[in-house]
């Protein structure tokens, strides 16, 4: 589904991603871990098409086609979703209005008519129940005054509504309390199928107990330095990143 080949990217004169290779197949869950500032969010932004970053080498294929030339919204229309580490506020635009616009713009791009209001309402009801979101919450301005955990839950609500093929969850677990973590993870698991894939970026092994990864990758200084199965996450938690770094220089 997603194939990243020797990706190099950065900002102005600064190289951030220094040759990333990653292959994600439909039905798989990949976890990316790594120290602060190693480039995890940059990687997700580059995949999602943030223009601020310049791709200086390599390629990103989605469903076997390069997406490097596509705008962010075109990538979204193809089914790439990013749950932001820091979701932004849009004052005066309700969650409902925002998600309605997102869905209908995506449908428009595919030559479909707007989703009928009754279908939309039904879907909103279903997904908000799945994620145990109070519907009053949906009429509030997007992310304005939301607590850290509410923002993250709202990201997953949007994911549930948009039903992407590839979801990248950038530290969705940080800020969630124990119950919320379980609810959100359950939500993500319910949306998993053999046709879609998930990349979870996290610092904590705990999330991976709920969303069990097929592969774990360690990103250090813009490179994937180690990959393994779910047990790698446990090992990391136990030994810290110095262990990986030491192994590298050894």
């Amino acid at each position: 589904m997603l194939e990243i080949k020797n990706l190099n990217a950065g900002i102005e004169d600064k190289d951030i991603l220094k040759g990333i290779d990653l292959k994600v197949k439909a039905g798989e869950v990949h976890a990316i871990m790594g120290p602060n500032g190693s480039g995890k969010s940059t990687l997700s932004s580059v995949v999602a098409g943030k223009e601020e970053y310049e791709v200086t080498g390599g390629d990103i294929l989605f469903e076997n086609e390069s997406i490097l030339e596509l705008d962010a919204e075109e990538r979204a229309h193809k089914g790439i979703f990013l749950s932001f580490q820091y979701p932004v506020e849009i004052p005066g635009v309700s969650v409902t209005n925002f998600i309605k616009t997102a869905i209908n713009e995506t449908r428009k791009a595919k030559g479909l008519k707007d989703m009928p209001a009754s279908d939309m309402l039904k879907m909103i009801r279903e997904k908000s129940e799945l994620l145990e979101i109070d519907r009053k919450f949906l009429s509030r301005s997007l992310n304005e005054g939301f607590s850290g955990g509410e923002k993250k839950r709202n990201e997953i609500f949007q994911m549930a509504m948009l039903e992407p093929k590839l979801a990248i969850l950038d530290e969705t677990d940080s800020g969630l309390d124990i119950d919320a973590l379980r609810i959100v993870s359950n939500g993500v698991n319910k949306l998993r199928s053999k046709d879609n894939a998930v990349i979870v970026i996290t610092h904590y092994q705990r999330l991976l107990e709920y969303i069990v990864p097929d592969f774990v990758h360690v990103l250090v200084d813009g490179k994937i330095v180690k990959s393994g199965g779910k047990e790698l996450a446990l090992e990391l938690e136990e030994k810290g990143y110095d262990w990986v770094k030491a192994e590298l220089t050894a």
Binding site: G49, E52, P87, F98, L162
Partner: peptide
Amino acid sequence: FYCNQRGIDTEKAIALIVNG
């Protein structure tokens, strides 16, 4: 960018933000 990532193009995003 947040709007773009959700499939909303820049023009529509501006309209949305301005309306809000």
